[in-house]
Simulated scan of single mutants.
Amino acid sequence: MLGAQRKDHLRTLLATEGRVVAKAVAAELGISEDSVRRDLRELAEAGECIRVYGGALPVPAADAPVAQRRAVATESKQRVARAAIALIRPGSTVILDGGTTALAMARMLPHDAELTVITPSPAVALAALEGSPARVVMVGGELTRHSAVTGGALAQEAVSRLSADVFFLGVTGIDRDHGLTTGRLDDAVTKRALAARSADVFVLGSSEKIGAVSRFPVLRLDEVSGVVVDPEDRSPSALEYCEPSPGGPILE
């Protein structure tokens, strides 16, 4: 079988089965596992899959650029945002991550002039400023085109001087085995830094993120206070996050 045919077969498995197990594909096609791993590596370098131990997974929909993500699971994100808003205590300091669910939260903030909102996202900052009397603080740094949030050395310096009661973390993958992941290395570094400066960390878990795995790890599940899932998502993959975890409550 030609290399192009093997890759087409791998793409089909990713689309229909949601995973590729290198050992199984090698046995099925009568080729070496090294050949399968090489094909998967090339597909991953082209952005067509995510390499994991033993094989590969599809690229999550949440890894798309921010402009495309606005149309993904919009109703689920609204429900997650409403559930997360209920966790905000009056007068607290809150970090809202970048992303479409955090943007929905910014538009739902309580009418609390004592609230402080910190964010690396200009869109989230503007929404918070326009929709609430909260004090709004922007994290400085270089603005990335893919996720439209600040990052880099300037952002790291700014984050090191901040502290917050709670961080609402946006990721692109939430998986029991692989933890919390995102599609960009700089974003992962900034998210970890923000989490380290926060007393509590809650993950925003809209439906398209549950069970997905992206390329770069952010935190383990036992390192966060909880995952806020869509209360109307009754799928098995979402329901498992409604059970208590070693790191804290998993919330609906």
Rank of each mutant, 00 (worst) to 15 (best):
R135A: 13
A81S: 00
L154A: 15
S206M: 02
H9A: 10
L251F: 01
D112Y: 04
R184F: 14
S76T: 04
S32D: 12
A128G: 02
V218Q: 07
L13V: 09
V229I: 09
A212W: 05
V137E: 06
I174F: 05
G99A: 04
A4P: 01
G183Q: 01
H178F: 15
E42M: 11
Q156I: 05
V171A: 13
G91C: 08
L251W: 11
V171P: 09
L109K: 03
L40S: 06
V21W: 05
G173D: 06
P110W: 08
A64P: 01
S198V: 12
L251Q: 05
D112F: 09
L169K: 01
G141A: 07
R79K: 08
I210Q: 12
A46K: 13
E157R: 15
E75L: 09
S121E: 01
E252V: 15
A62D: 09
M138G: 05
G91D: 13
V213P: 08
R135S: 11
K191N: 05
G3V: 03
V72N: 02
D165L: 08
L14N: 01
A153V: 13
T101L: 03
V171N: 10
R19H: 11
P236S: 00
E142T: 15
A67V: 11
K209G: 04
D63S: 15
V201Y: 04
V80K: 00
G179Y: 10
S160P: 02
I88P: 06
R70C: 00
E232W: 07
L129Y: 06
R19T: 15
P217V: 08
A123I: 05
F167A: 01
R69G: 01
R79A: 06
